[in-house]
Amino acid sequence: MRYNFDEIIDRQNTNGIKWETLQDIFGATDLLPMWVADMDFRGPEPVMEALKQRAEIGTFGYTQRPDSLYEAIAGWVERKHHWKINKEWICWSPGVLPALIVCIQNFTKPGDRIIIQPPVYPPFFKIVKDNDRELVTNPLRYVNNRYEIDFEDLADKFRTTGAKMLILCSPHNPVGRVWTREELSRIEAICEEFDALIISDEIHADLAYSPFQHIPMASLSTRAADRTIVCFAPSKTFNLAGLQSSYIMIPNKELRNAFNKTMARGHLAMSNSFAITASESAYKDGGEWLEQCLAYIRANIDYAAEFFALHIPEIKMINPEGTYLLWLDCSRLGLDTAGLRRFMVKEAKLALNEGISFGTEGEGFMRMNAACRRATIEEALQRLLKAIEARR
């Protein structure tokens, strides 16, 4: 079927953070919300229909996960990412962040050092510190409007700090890089040299744009699989974040048993009825929707890139290879962090994510969500242009 991504979806009164917390977060309600990383689109029709049928049964007791769900996940991963996984590798978590916390608690000790690569997803900073581990940063290099991994610094940080773990963001949020096989192989080689565990957050795995191809970290080799825990979820792919379900691939049996034991001890291993239904349906029948959705978002991204280049050269957009997030270099505006925040909220009337929240390396940047109607993108850019022109 043909999906209409221009359809107006009223997200008010759905308890959605993105649209209903503007006053609390930004101090204003007249803003266009383009911050939280979820989509403004209605999900795949097969998923909506499956959820309706499940709801009509009228009972919502404790659940088990059927073999058909495992088969749907394995089939999707093999078709989409060319990685043949075993059923027993699949573990469960309410979300990727709870899984990351369990990994930190299980496989490091208080005081151990953990490496992240900023500018990066803000909770990475918090979950390391909140669990009494020491944060070590391996900042990405911003070169010619593109981000690269500083491999020499990564090796040096392992060598000098004795870090036990790397939390990898792949594809990377917010800079939009889809790491190449060569880049991932270099990461794995460094982690092998220093006997470090890789926790790979691959929640945006399904959102890579041609010709870029996401490669699961653990699919590189048996050596990589032995020291890697891969975190996947249907949430970003099919706009199902509110159902709170993710699956964690752990090929290493010892690591897998430890992870599952902690999840069971915390009574976190059970999935809700709708998450099971939606996930299975999405992985079986959501491919057509995703293909059309990615084409629509890519057109939004291309529109924004052209608009910035032609009308707002003061802001440089990092063209994403994956994700639906636009990383905007606003440094030419000459504003400090507080000034840039005021400009976006008070003058442009936009609710965006502040770059500084992704680490000091994000200072002077803003993150904009492009998974929305074209009309929303157009309105946002016109608001931004009007505010910029007033300053010119």
Rank of each mutant, 00 (worst) to 15 (best):
V136R: 06
I25F: 03
A72W: 01
K284G: 07
V345A: 02
T160V: 10
P174C: 02
E183H: 02
E288A: 11
L166P: 04
K253C: 14
I318G: 05
N144Q: 09
A196W: 04
L350M: 05
E389W: 01
L310D: 14
P216E: 00
Y283H: 12
V128S: 05
T161A: 02
I229W: 08
G339C: 12
L340S: 00
E321S: 01
R181A: 06
I215G: 03
K236W: 12
D156R: 15
E49Q: 15
T323P: 02
R342A: 08
K253W: 12
L197K: 00
Y209R: 06
T376Q: 07
T21A: 04
N86S: 15
A282P: 09
L310Q: 13
V178I: 08
Q244N: 14
E280Y: 07
I377M: 02
P234F: 11
N106C: 15
R367N: 11
K284I: 04
A299K: 05
A189V: 01
Y296K: 01
E7L: 13
D156Q: 15
G362L: 07
S273F: 14
E152T: 13
C330P: 03
G111R: 01
R367L: 15
A224K: 05
L328P: 00
D112T: 03
K109F: 13
I85P: 03
A380P: 02
